[in-house]
Design a protein around this nucleic acid. Structure first.
Length: 896
RNA sequence: GGGCGGUUAGCUCAGCGGUAGAGCGUCUCGUUUACACCGAGAGGGCCGGCGGUUCGAACCCGUCACCGCCCACCA
């Protein structure tokens, strides 16, 4: 006997372990089945399962389980990402706690330490994925810094370098002073900062005039090499070509005309610091200005490059003050400079100013544009075939609107800075000879050989100190995990993948780059479909964040309600392009669904329902069994169509409605009278059908709620233990006499609902049974009612069912059903005034509706222009509504 | 500044040309032999505003408002 409730905690671990041990998650590269591939978005090795993971991996698991059941050779490729900055930060924090740091340890020792950390603590998320029920092919697990994947990275780097698509360049980068590394454009996020706009007067050389500039970063003025005004700005026209004296340093800087200057902004004159501002850099290039750096890699003032030029100008510049700034933090220097300008009376105005300031997305500190030598990837060239692939539909975004986002970014893509000044990651495969010659090679031996060939003698080489952007190796994931550059059978079979599932925040970082690399190296798209889901938010719609304290831990929810409940909630809430608002209450109600299923199974068990492998739905003879089999067919079709179109919400709704509102609410109730005579042939058919339909329900629900379904599947011994995961996804089968069965059972449902409604509204206690008398009923209705007497008696609290003989008894409640009037003799039990009011209300509703339709039909344009079947439908409805109204009014007249 | 999405019952959302729906919550009733993690029933909506197209608009078009997000932008 099944326990009273399903206890997930007692089941989940064992069931998962059994699946895993039996190889239930494994792909079968040698099979004849069509492959179906999902590459996991590799979670950071530092990561622990959060709600976003729970969402994305639930969706992926639903898809992979569903396709596996459909007979596809399903590969869900697992793995994790080395996550350069994130991992380095974690280990550096550990070192700090030990009172040391990576520089003191040295590179090799530090890397050993990171690997050690990974071995000890890096696998947390894979354990957590198992708790969620994710059916990944674990023996194929990969890590972006595995030997194989590292070899792929080197091959790609060397190839793109040879093709001229990877190169070194000295230009402005987004510099993160916290990490002391370059970061890509994508890793920069704008934050709104309430700062100041300082107006600073620059004396004009050889005159008593001043030109005033406005800035939010006065410390950068040390590196100014010009003041720019707009060519058409008459206010400054006569100053163009003259020189300003840069306060503090006393340097002469030209006043130039440049379109970049916006007369509307600030004072109309803008200071130009080419080494510390992207726009200014462009101005500097146009006017061949020097580009002195005044900030170092830590964000401190460095005056190395311009120190020799410091000039004392009384009341304007004081070299001693400037020298005193050297080594100061940029923000301390800002403060000092503002104070000094004020003292010099060159600060003409200070206004509060709210503006967007770029910050490092991980470090959270303001980034500093810095002139450095870095490795770049020519993304523009790589993007072209990727754009075409989406334009031609070879890769499709779901929902499609995300294609616009993809296109907008890809068509205006900037060079990708791929080098990082970190230690943890793929070290750049470039070696330098003492004279600076670069040798790019897949191995040091190759580089040495190249160098020896070039110089005619062996030379010592030093490898580039930098590592690659983490996303560089992620970009190769769809093929590097399959063994590329080796031509493995997996590569041939599982590339391109079918679906990539991810969030929109990752389209640029990852999706776009996989598209570029996949196309370049595999000559085909990496996946046919990109399914983009929303974000998980809390139940009030707030983004979850530690600082808000509204983070929900999926593992806690799994502990409390079970993995199935969490998965079901996610599934039911995942519509297209929607964020998922999720709170414990939602998960609790999902647990209710799991329990409902469990109890339905218990009921089946109690009534001797057992699977019969020889059961054939086409041999069903009873209206009840034909009806439920037909309804199951429709549920199967709906659920399948929903999954086909990535409508996880509709899939869940269809499966839910069938399970709860059809199978439990009606079928099992209707089955009770038959089951009460367990030895009858009728009961036997009902039991066999119930077992079959319960099996269908378990199969339909398995992708979403694998644990409870597999538990029940095994308990009932539908097949070998643990086999539901590998059981065929159901398909609709022809049911003879389905239409007649549907008409009959639908009528019974409507009769019971009608009687229940009247009784409840009239406050008739359920314990009080009453006859159901049918006035003016067609013979078919009477015979149906008679046939279903037992069920009607139970469900509509009826003592009898039959035609009304003679007059409607005084004190009856009345209602209508099709051509008939339902009469419930309840004299003394109901309030006649209330019954009159109820009938009047019902008649009124029918009248309103009839009037509405009549008006529509009275419109000649409607009759002339609307589709014929719509007009016909309205005529039928009008007739039905008028007849119903007449019956209700007659009923009312009888008790008036 | 450019773009995308949203605005439907108290809440969360579905519906996207032809009778306004679900879940949760609310209220009423209920120990009917699977389930109180339950059952039965009820109430609740000028489908954001204004125009337009159409025989017909929650749905299509235009416009405005508000909310959210992305991109650009350190004067």
């Amino acid at each position: 006997m099944l326990d009273k409730n399903f206890t997930p905690a007692a089941t989940e671990r064992d069931l998962y372990a059994a699946w895993e041990k039996d190889g239930a998650f494994a792909a079968h590269p040698d099979s004849n089945a069509a492959p179906f591939t999902i590459m996991i978005p590799p979670p950071n090795v530092t990561g622990s399962l959060h709600m976003g993971h729970a969402l994305t991996f639930t969706v992926q698991d639903v898809l992979i389980r569903w396709r596996r059941m459909q007979g596809r050779d399903a590969l869900w490729q697992p793995g994790s990402d080395h996550a350069g900055i994130a991992t380095q930060m974690v280990v550096e924090r550990l070192l700090a706690a030990e009172g040391t740091d990576r520089k003191a340890m040295g590179r090799a020792a530090f890397l050993d330490r990171v690997w050690q950390w990974k071995a000890e603590s890096g696998g947390a998320i894979t354990t957590q994925l198992r708790r969620l029920g994710a059916s990944l092919d674990w023996p194929r697990e990969r890590f972006t810094m595995d030997d194989g994947l590292s070899a792929a990275v080197r091959r790609v780097f060397v190839t793109l370098h040879r093709e001229g698509l990877i190169y070194r360049d000295r230009r402005l980068v987004n510099w993160d002073p916290q990490f002391q590394s370059a970061i890509s454009d994508l890793e920069v996020e704008s934050r709104e900062i309430r700062g100041h706009l300082w107006h600073i007067a620059y004396p004009v050389e050889g005159s008593d005039r001043r030109i005033t500039v406005a800035t939010t970063r006065p410390e950068t003025m040390l590196g100014d090499t010009a003041v720019a005004v707009h060519p058409t700005d008459e206010r400054f026209a006569d100053l163009v070509g003259r020189f300003a004296i840069l306060p503090l340093t006393g340097r002469r800087v030209p006043i130039v005309a440049d379109e970049y200057s916006d007369p509307e902004k600030g004072t109309g004159a803008v200071k130009i610091t080419p080494a510390h501002d992207f726009n200014d850099f462009a101005v500097g290039q146009r006017h061949s200005l020097p580009m002195p750096s005044v900030l170092d890699r830590e964000g401190k003032i460095t005056l190395v490059e311009i120190e020799g030029e410091l000039a004392a100008v009384p009341g304007v510049a004081d070299p001693a003050f400037v020298r005193g700034l050297a080594g100061q933090d940029r923000f301390a220097a800002r403060k000092a400079i503002v104070a000094e300008l004020e003292r010099l009376e060159l600060l003409t105005k200070t206004e509060p100013h709210t503006h967007q300031v770029p910050h490092g997305d991980r470090s959270g500190v303001p980034i500093e544009p810095l002139l450095t030598l870095q490795w770049y990837c020519n993304a523009e060239v790589l993007a072209k075939p990727a754009i075409e692939a989406v334009e031609q539909g070879r890769t499709r975004f779901v929902p499609q609107q995300w294609e616009n986002t993809f296109f907008a970014w890809m068509r205006d893509i900037q060079p990708w800075c791929i080098s990082r000044q970190l230690w943890w990651g793929h070290r750049i495969p470039a070696w330098y000879a003492p004279d600076g010659t670069v040798f790019v090679a897949e191995s040091e031996a190759d580089a040495l050989a190249q160098a020896a060939a070039k110089f005619g003698t062996p030379v010592a080489l030093a490898q580039d100190e930098d590592v690659l952007d983490t996303w560089f190796s992620s970009a190769l994931w769809p093929f590097s995990t399959l063994g590329w550059p080796e031509q493995t059978r997996e590569l041939a079979r599982y590339y391109p993948g079918d679906v990539l599932v991810t969030g929109f925040d990752i389209i640029f970082f990852w999706v776009a780059r996989m598209m570029m690399m996949g196309h370049h190296f595999m000559k085909d798209v990496p996946f046919r479909t990109v399914y983009i889901h929303g974000l998980v938010r809390d139940e009030r719609g707030q983004k979850m964040s530690k600082s808000k304290g509204n983070v929900i831990d999926p593992l806690v929810l799994i502990d409390q309600y079970g993995a199935d409940a969490l998965r079901w909630t996610i599934c039911a809430l995942t519509g297209p392009g929607r964020d998922v608002k999720l709170g414990p209450a939602r998960v609790e109600s999902s647990r209710g669904f799991v329990t409902k299923l469990w109890n339905a199974a218990r009921f089946c068990e109690m009534n001797g329902v057992a699977p019969d492998p020889d059961f054939d739905p086409a041999t069903a003879t009873l209206p009840l069994t034909r009806w439920i089999l037909d309804a199951a067919n429709r549920a199967i079709a709906e659920a399948t169509a929903a999954l086909d179109s990535y409508r996880f919400d509709e899939y869940a709704a269809a499966a839910y409605r069938f399970t709860w509102n059809v199978f439990c609410d009606w079928f099992l109730e209707f089955a009770k009278p038959a089951l009460a005579k367990p030895d009858s042939a009728e009961a036997a058919e009902v039991r066999r059908t119930a077992a079959h339909v319960l099996g269908l329900v378990l199969r339909l629900l398995h992708p979403a709620i694998p644990y409870v379904t597999e538990t029940l599947w095994d308990y009932f011994r539908y097949a070998a233990p643990g086999s539901l995961i590998a059981t065929a996804w159901p398909e609709p089968t022809p049911i003879p006499g389905a239409e007649a069965a549907r008409a009959e059972l639908d009528w019974v449902v409507r009769l019971i609902s009608e009687v229940r409604g009247v009784r409840a509204e009239m406050n008739v206690p359920p314990s009080r049974l009453a006859p159901i008398l049918m006035k003016d009923a067609a013979p078919e209705a009477l015979s149906r009612g008679a046939a279903w007497m037992e069920a009607i008696a139970r469900l509509a609290r009826a003592s009898s069912f039959g035609p009304l003989e003679g007059e409607v008894p005084a004190g009856s409640a009345q209602s209508t059903l099709d051509e008939a009037t339902i009469v419930l003799p309840l004299a003394g039990l109901i309030d006649l005034d209330a019954e009159r009011a109820r009938l009047a209300r019902e008649a009124g509703k029918a009248r309103d509706e009839a009037d509405k339709i009549a008006r529509k039909l009275a419109n000649p344009d409607f009759v002339a222009r609307a589709r014929e079947e719509v007009v016909e439908e309205n005529r039928d409805r009008l007739a039905a509504m008028q007849a119903d109204m007449a019956r209700l009014e007659a009923a009312l007249a009888r008790i008036a």
